[in-house]
Design a protein around this nucleic acid. Structure first.
Length: 280
DNA sequence: CCAAGGCCTGAATG
DNA sequence: ACATTCAGGCCTT
């Protein structure tokens, strides 16, 4: 009987789901919205704002989840190899902007972009004698000029960032309601935000809106499916269309079950490590 | 409903 | 060097 209670902090942080982290004196420090988290190697979280949020989802029943998603040898291998990998419960607004910025980009550039945004629009804060910039508030980004946002290197995504921030300020989008809504309803709502397509929507839902059945299908995941699951999920075209994405997600859910998002994270981590990609 | 092309940017390729 | 390609997609035509 394997114990899945142990959290692998390093693996969880370096798995493409969260970007604003740095390691100092044996601790990982991360920006989560208007909060700063300090995490030790055991996954004990100390919050600057004294937030009680269960960032590493310690309350998830990992034994049950692992059991549920272990439907084939590929996942079982990934789970075994990266046990301790967790899905992070992130600040929804930061998550939204992060994945809008992520589209058609890469991890290193995403990180640089988000750091610049935080430095330009976020509040400078000192925590344990270290200087941090909190994530920009929606108000700041909504009233910023496109060129100011562009100066952070986000290019054509600048207008998406601004519009997204404006929509969050309006009452069209309420993250707390979306956390309680089902997958389809939530996706329908957040996809009205410019820059949020199928993949970005799934990332936001999985990492910040409590939708563990979300299974972001990016280039890497498609490659993984082609490599290990070509007999289960046929992918006949190069680019996945709207309809195909939907059909594929249903097949994936049918195979991996309601915690499919966890399986995605394990598979993604495994394959990326195999290709020795740098994370942060 | 699908296919194709454009898009900021910067690191990687040739 | 310098040009071209490519990268955790999305939007428009």
């Amino acid at each position: 009987m394997q114990n899945y209670c142990t959290i692998n902090v390093e693996n969880s942080i370096n798995s493409g789901q969260s970007f604003l982290w740095r390691k100092t004196r044996g601790y990982w420090y991360g920006i989560n919205g208007q909060d700063i988290l300090r995490v030790d190697k055991n996954g004990v979280v100390d919050s600057f704002q004294n937030s009680k949020i269960d960032f590493f989802r310690k309350n998830d029943n990992l034994d049950e989840i692992i059991k549920s998603i272990s439907k084939d040898k590929t996942v079982r291998k990934a789970v075994k190899q990266y046990s301790g990998l967790r899905i992070l419960r992130q600040d929804p607004f930061q998550c939204l902007i992060s994945f809008i910025v992520s589209s058609n980009s890469n991890i290193q550039k995403i990180k640089t972009n988000l750091e610049k945004l935080s430095k330009k629009f976020g509040v400078k804060t000192t925590y344990e004698n270290e200087e941090f910039f909190l994530f920009p508030k929606a108000e700041k980004l909504a009233t910023a000029s496109i060129n100011e946002i562009k100066s952070c290197g986000v290019g054509y995504r600048a207008k998406f960032v601004k519009e997204a921030a404006k929509m969050i300020l309006s009452d069209k989008i309420d993250f707390e309601i979306l956390k309680k809504s089902n997958y389809e309803e939530t996706k329908e709502v957040i996809r009205t935000i410019p820059g949020v397509g199928n993949k970005v929507a799934d990332c936001i839902m999985l990492f910040s809106l409590e939708k563990l059945e979300a299974f972001p299908l990016d280039r890497w995941m498609v490659r993984i499916l082609e490599k290990y699951y070509s007999n289960k999920f046929q992918i006949d075209t190069k680019t996945i269309t709207e309809k195909q994405y939907e059909i594929l997600h249903k097949k994936i859910l049918n195979h991996f079950g309601p915690y499919a998002g966890y399986s995605q994270q394990f598979l993604f981590k495994m394959e990326r490590e195999n290709y020795q990609k740098k994370w942060l």
